[in-house]
Write a protein that binds this DNA or RNA. Structure first.
Lengths: 221, 221
DNA sequence: GTCTATATGACGATAGAC
DNA sequence: GTCTATCGTCATATAGAC
């Protein structure tokens, strides 16, 4: 009986996983044109080459499919940041580190707009990600907090900096850049995007390196 | 013939305007629970107390209704900022002025979440606001630019500040605060919101007043 | 595991009577 | 100006044959 074999080595299980992956990929591709909330299972089935009811052999509901897409997106961004982590921590200033981190985030969001919308907005009113789907996103925040702690320990941030507040402010800044870019000029890429272009000066004010890009008058002295 | 009378004094015209307003109000109320993209004309008609086809006597399509809602939202936020303009320009520092402006924006967005989503995100894939609907939003940006110019002229911003870049960065910051608050904790109000709470420190870094809330290590000297 | 067939109901929009 | 009736299309989801 196949049930006695480890799941990963079962040929049928492997084939099933491939089908699941294909369904998710097709769903993401369709959401890019129809909008995240406008996904139609009929369209998904047509693109996959099966009939609609067959999808229910893989996902018990439409929201379960959303949850799988959410999970995939969260894992993808976590992997992307993870791959850049060494580079981010290698640079010698908080400005360079956070600008690089922000650019990695911005680039990922522009090349994965569907995932970004699903992860960072709430485009489907009756869908809430499951804890398992959410977990990589939590881990991403934890890793970012660790990045901030590392910068502080290396003397690149004020020793008395409130890490949670700093983390919050930085996330807000990056979220602002991404949301403006996606909402107003989604066709621009990460390099030419007019809102992504705000990252250097925002990061500069954040890391407090005075000079070009800072707007406030210097305090009278 | 009623057509020869000025439209504004025509009783029938007035009644018609009232019905249009009611339809818009109902639509906004329903979008608060069903999501902006999930609006159903059947629900609207039911709440208004008419049958669905009757709505087509007032709006030629569903997107035309969205456009009317968009217009109303844009006018509302423009009026809100306009009402606060005197207070904003009365204060004596860029920090106070921009924090107040940000708070007015944040409060409006939290109490008008449907409008905020429709104006600042793109929740309905096949809806694009008409130029008329968009015009108040353009005027809002122009007024904000004028606010920045005024701050610079009063010596509260660096005399060589790039106003367009400053405006962009500030809009990005406020958009970040609002989008994070709406997406992650829409039930919190403007006073207790954990992301709205980032406004002071963000504004402080923006206006470059050093001290509490700034994270970067001071440059070695 | 995939299919046909179907339940069940929504949707936006139109035609035409009154 | 509102209605009934309906068009045509779509949706998610289920039952049961093969």
């Amino acid at each position: 009986m196949s049930q006695t074999l480890p799941a990963g080595t079962d040929r049928r299980h492997l084939r099933r996983q491939q089908t699941i992956e294909e369904i998710i990929e097709v769903a993401v591709r369709l959401m890019a044109t129809s909008g995240v909330a406008g996904l139609s299972l009929g369209d998904v089935a047509r693109q996959v080459g099966v009939r609609t009811p067959s999808l229910y052999g893989y996902f018990p509901s439409k929201n379960a499919l959303y949850d799988a897409v959410f999970t995939r997106g969260a894992r993808s961004i976590l992997a992307t940041i993870g791959a850049a982590e060494a580079d981010i921590t290698a640079v010698g200033s908080a400005y360079d580190a956070l600008l690089l981190a922000g650019r990695v985030m911005g680039r990922w969001c522009m090349t994965n707009q569907v995932y970004a919308q699903l992860l960072f907005w709430r485009p489907v009113p009756d869908f809430t990600p499951s804890p398992q789907a959410y977990q990589p996103a939590v881990e991403l925040v934890d890793r970012t907090r660790a990045l901030f702690a590392g910068l502080r320990d290396r003397g690149l941030l004020r020793p008395d900096a409130d890490l949670d507040a700093a983390l919050r402010d930085w996330i807000v800044m990056v979220a602002g850049v991404v949301s403006q870019q996606l909402a107003n000029a989604p066709e621009e890429d990460a390099e030419t995007g007019r809102f992504i272009a705000a990252l250097p000066s925002l990061t500069r004010m954040f890391t407090h390196e005075y000079g070009a890009g800072a707007y406030g008058a210097r305090p009278a002295r």
